[in-house]
Design a protein around this nucleic acid. Sequence first.
DNA 1: AACATTAATGAACAGCTGTATATAATTATT
DNA 2: AATAATTATATACAGCTGTTCATTAATGTT
Lengths: 184, 184
Amino acid sequence: MTQVTKVDRRILKSQEAIKHAVIELMSEKKFDDITVQDIADRANVSRGTIYLHYLDKFDLLDKMIGEHINEMKILCASTADMEFAEANLPWFEYLEQNYLFFSTMLASKGAHSFRRQFHEFLIEEFKDEVNILEGKNYGLNGEIILQFIVTSYVGIVEWWITNDMPYPPDVMAEQVGILLERNL
Amino acid sequence: MTQVTKVDRRILKSQEAIKHAVIELMSEKKFDDITVQDIADRANVSRGTIYLHYLDKFDLLDKMIGEHINEMKILCASTADMEFAEANLPWFEYLEQNYLFFSTMLASKGAHSFRRQFHEFLIEEFKDEVNILEGKNYGLNGEIILQFIVTSYVGIVEWWITNDMPYPPDVMAEQVGILLERNL
DNA sequence: AACATTAATGAACAGCTGTATATAATTATT
DNA sequence: AATAATTATATACAGCTGTTCATTAATGTT
């Protein structure tokens, strides 16, 4: 069931301007140094308008991250029955394409949002892959294995981005793919 | 070469009072809700005194975390040639003993400090354990394997603490030990 | 005990935050 | 086109932050 109620144009316009302003400012300074006043000035809206849509600047960042995670979910749907190494590739390419956003965001106090959302997303993706009834993980704790895999994925992505993507997406996808196969 | 120059008693007294105040306040509210004014009032020092010792409240938290990491380094030195499952145990026990501090800290915007410091510490511990010249990791990228292992360790510890330690330290140590053996 | 050094204090400051409110402008609907 | 509802604006406010500075207090060393 899709929501068909029209959203007031003013809301879309304000939110677009605000998010666009953040992207612009991110290429000029660290997210932690960007003030709500900065964003309002750049977006050409009243500072109060930002608080009308978001709790604070971290909530704003959180929602921008959420939109990226949704993009990655869509990418994921199209690789449903590939091998890990192959299915990983679109994600690493997507991260690379949005390097400025992700690197600036990860260098800020809002990095927690990304980690939380990406973690939740990956838990959904991998939770059915863990088998402790037979095979290599027989007898182990499924919850701990799932956390082990997912946090390593989140962590390696964060490492890759904050270290200026030292390897190309296809190398990352392949190496991470091998590590996933070994543990799942 | 140990530093023998005496530290002014007032410095020790102020810093002790400040750190003690933070610990106290942590049992009353989330770290993000604690203000520098709160800390100054509780520690019975002038607000300016805190800025005399620390850049801001996150720098203060960072230094408190650093002291815990140092404790864990000391624990580590005594388990140098044990199996992973055994060597892990003192860490998980230490984390359990300081549950209030770690859980409150991880629920804040300062969680990044812990992750960074614990990550750096583990890199030092594990960097010599990766062998890509023979064995299970032959031909793989050593840097990526190291990041994979270390971030999963940091992540699983964070998961364990923020989820109210759902398993006792010995179970965690054993399960994580198995996962480490498999990948190193 | 007297001294020079260092640390702590209190007050003042500009700037940002988050909230509230009255007013104006825009929108969707009739 | 007129209307009611919604959104945006400007302004004001109290509280916190991080810095500065002159003054006072405590410390370690002669």
